[in-house]
Amino acid sequence: MELLIEFFSSYGYFAVFFVLLICGFGVPIPEDITLVSGGVISGLGYTNVHWMLVVSMIGVLVGDSTMYWLGRIYGEKILKFPLIRKIATPERFATVQDRFEKEGWKLLFVARFLPGLRAVVYLVSGITRKVTFTRFVLVDFFAAIISVPIWVYLGDFGAKNLDWLHAQIQKGQMVIWVILIIGGIFVFWKWKKSRKAKSVDSPTQNTDNQP
């Protein structure tokens, strides 16, 4: 985080936007740390925190949208590109594609909180064309508006106490994972319940159809 703070302090909004853009491409730079670092330089007086939030939201949405359009324009041919091939491995791509067929826009929303799969999900959404770009942006915006302000304002608030800030980041990441796990368990429970209900109804329907 210290390296990002130093870089952002020198180049301001442009640097934050650039790093968030390449984060959207799946480059292994933690997006939450990038956002917090942007908030930190605001807290240190280099930028305005409210404008930093606007720049951060635009950087996040443009980066995510780029992955969507790469998938939509090139289709599965994009998977042959060296950089994309490292991000979207065949196994990861197959897993995300299968989940996307079942979950659609719900997976898009959750993907914002899944650093390892985020770029692949956005790529798949473009390749499958099951989600229009308008819906993609709306879902991505509503997911981003939950997390982005939290990280930026947290960085601004703790700019002068980085040890405290590191501790809060870890707590925040833990809370996000707990919420995702609970949500995953709930979705799995609903799926099992729905499947069980269908299996109970099926024999009845077969009996009714008999002559």
Score class of each variant (00 low, 15 high):
Glu2Gln: 06
Glu2His: 05
Ile5Gly: 08
Phe8His: 04
Ser10His: 07
Ser10Gly: 01
Phe17Ala: 15
Phe18Lys: 08
Val19Cys: 08
Phe25His: 09
Phe25Val: 10
Val27Gln: 03
Ile33Cys: 03
Ser37Phe: 04
Ser37Gln: 06
Ile41Trp: 12
Met52Gln: 11
Val54Tyr: 05
Ser56Asn: 02
Ser65Cys: 12
Ser65Gly: 15
Lys77Trp: 11
Lys80Cys: 04
Ile84Cys: 14
Phe93Ile: 11
Thr95Gln: 14
Arg99Ala: 15
Glu101Asn: 14
Glu101Gly: 06
Lys102Phe: 11
Lys106His: 09
Ala111Leu: 05
Arg112Glu: 12
Leu123Pro: 02
Ser125Asn: 03
Lys130His: 05
Lys130Phe: 00
Val131Pro: 06
Arg135Ala: 08
Phe136Cys: 04
Val137Met: 10
Asp140Gly: 08
Ile146Pro: 08
Ser147Thr: 09
Trp151Asp: 05
Leu154Met: 15
Lys160Cys: 00
Trp164Pro: 00
His166Leu: 09
Gln170Tyr: 11
Gly172Lys: 11
Gly172Pro: 08
Trp177Met: 14
Val178Phe: 09
Val178Tyr: 04
Ile179Tyr: 05
Gly184Leu: 01
Gly184Gln: 01
Ile185Lys: 13
Phe186Cys: 08
Phe188Ile: 11
Trp189Tyr: 14
Lys190Val: 06
Lys190Leu: 12
Arg195Phe: 01
Lys198Thr: 11
Gln205Thr: 04
